[in-house]
Design a protein around this nucleic acid. Structure first.
Length: 469
RNA sequence: GGUGCCAUCGCCAAGCGGUAAGGCCGCAGCCUGCAAAGCUGCUAUCCCCGGUUCAAAUCCGGGUGGCACCUCCA
């Protein structure tokens, strides 16, 4: 397995801390609003990584956090009058639901910041004891970046002259401009606060991940050099979030946070990063309203995870057509039990995915398998062994890439209710009779009517089948 | 101002020094009562300029254009 390490800036062989095991931690969402397509892409990218490592035989432990205490959530509390818990449980539930729709496997560990306060306090305390952090008069606690000789190793940002240009907020009591808040003391009574040895307040964003990783992963790894194998997240988290995480963990624990760092590219709309400030965010729930989760998954995963992804409907439709082809093949071979996966096919897929998740190659391997199987079925429709192997092939695709697992007829009938289904069946029966009587005008009229209804039909050797167009 | 990434057929997208995968769209054919589906065939020399090399889309230098990070962000 080769992965691209964004710190080394090159593809490197994946050599886990523990033989045969892989621990992955991905920065999850701050739950103050609905998830957008960017959250989906990140989750999907690391879902693919996890599936690939599993298929290669690794025992994968996946962690993904929920930041459920944060300025923006508090702002939402003030705006809506709802409690913090009401808001966070709502958005966490929505997030998980939507990820389920996309076929993203649940993480093994899903820590929340509010449930990790003990670990956060401990880590900050340790940093204060080591003089790598300091409490200022307000009660805020800052990390002293000058105490970490390796600060900058993750993002490769070191230049001192950068300080003047950077937009980092300058606070009087900070020792160094780059120092960042580990803990934010409460200002008023309204605030959502927690008591600690240093002050009443709440955790800064960066410390959460470090503490949660330490709490859930590092213990199992004892005195290893690294806490986890892979730390992932969106490309925008590389700096300052991951740089800060790495520094805190290094100083507090004495070992490195992650052996490898992986970052996914952005979802763009019209060539620009999707963001709230630009007013072009695309919520996942809206996308799922219009498109099936599996189609969305296929589409969002069809571009390499490190590239930027320019979301548009035309490309999504093209992706859907590609997925449709797989399901049409599935219709031809189902029902039945799968035999063994074709060896060459399996190897080609794994080889592609082992190369830093080269999905483009993987999808082309699948397309070629589909075309070849169709060709063979055309010449020999009753080929039992081929059917069984194809079923197994598709099952393997579903395991590795997370699509193709639905019952094929159902896939093409998503969103069609029973009443409409009955009507379609009636029309198709009428059309068959007309055809039998060679009344082609009548049969074509029925077909036109179905087309108007958004139903495509195709006559096969096994009879007429229909699809939602 | 600093730091990165990217530029391949109409569209999406592989490629990582040895002579351009795959998909969508389009065209032609087979199949079909006609369609659809499926199958077959056809369609690019890789933003520009210079260099290195027997050989470059792939390496180096210089342009041009796009995007991102340096502030909360997947």
């Amino acid at each position: 397995m080769q992965i691209y390490d964004s710190v080394q800036k090159k593809k490197v062989p994946f050599e886990p801390i523990r033989k045969g095991e892989a621990s992955i931690y991905v920065c999850g969402p701050t739950v103050y609003d609905d998830a957008h397509l960017g959250h989906a892409r990140s989750a999907l990218a690391f879902d693919l990584l996890s599936r690939t490592l599993k298929a290669l035989g690794y025992k994968v432990t996946m962690g993904k956090n929920f930041t459920d205490i944060d300025d923006k959530i508090i702002k939402k509390v003030e705006e809506t009058g709802k409690s913090l818990e009401e808001i966070t449980t709502h958005y966490i539930a929505r997030y998980l639901e939507e990820m389920d729709a996309l076929g993203v496997a649940r993480a093994d560990i899903e820590p929340k910041a509010t449930e990790s306060l003990d670990a956060i306090e401990q880590m900050i305390q340790k940093l204060i004891e080591k003089d790598a952090a300091y409490v200022v008069s307000s009660g805020d606690v800052y990390f002293d970046t000058s105490k970490d000789a390796h600060y900058g190793d993750i993002s490769h940002r070191v230049g001192e002259d950068e300080e003047n240009q950077s937009r980092i907020e300058h606070t009087e009591e900070k020792r160094n401009p780059k120092d960042f808040a580990l803990w934010k003391a409460c200002k008023g009574d309204e605030d959502i606060c927690f008591d600690t040895a240093f002050s009443r307040g709440r955790p800064g964003w960066h410390i959460e991940c470090s503490a949660m990783i330490e709490k859930h992963f590092a213990k199992a790894h004892g005195n290893d050099t690294y806490s986890i194998d892979i730390h992932g997240g969106g490309a925008d988290l590389l700096f300052p979030h991951h740089e800060n995480e790495a520094a805190q963990s290094r100083c507090a624990t004495g070992h490195e946070l992650a052996k490898y760092w992986m970052h996914n590219g952005f979802v763009q709309i019209d060539g620009e990063k999707m963001s709230k400030s630009l007013g072009n965010s695309f919520f996942l729930k809206d996308a799922l309203n219009v498109y099936d989760g599996e189609v969305l998954r296929y589409y969002l995963n069809s571009v390499h995870y490190r590239n930027n992804f320019n979301f548009n409907e035309e490309d999504l439709l093209s992706a859907k057509k590609r997925l449709d082809r797989l399901y049409r093949l599935k219709k031809r071979v189902v029902p039945g039990k799968g035999s063994a996966v074709n060896k060459a096919f399996k190897e080609a897929l794994l080889e592609a995915m082992s190369d830093d998740l080269n999905v483009s190659i993987a999808l082309s391997v699948i397309d070629e398998m589909v075309a070849k199987a169709n060709e063979q079925l055309d010449s020999n429709p009753k080929e039992k062994a081929l059917k069984k192997e194809t079923i197994a092939n598709i099952e393997f695709i579903d395991t590795l890439l997370g699509f193709g697992g639905k019952e094929p007829y159902a896939y093409f009938q998503i969103g069609i209710d029973e009443a409409l289904k009955a009507k379609i069946e009636t029309l198709l029966n009428e059309r068959s009779e007309a055809k039998k009587a060679k009344e082609f005008e009548r049969s074509d009229a029925i077909r036109d009517e179905l087309t108007t209804m958004g139903i495509a039909i195709m006559d096969t050797a096994e009879g007429t089948v229909w699809e939602k167009a």
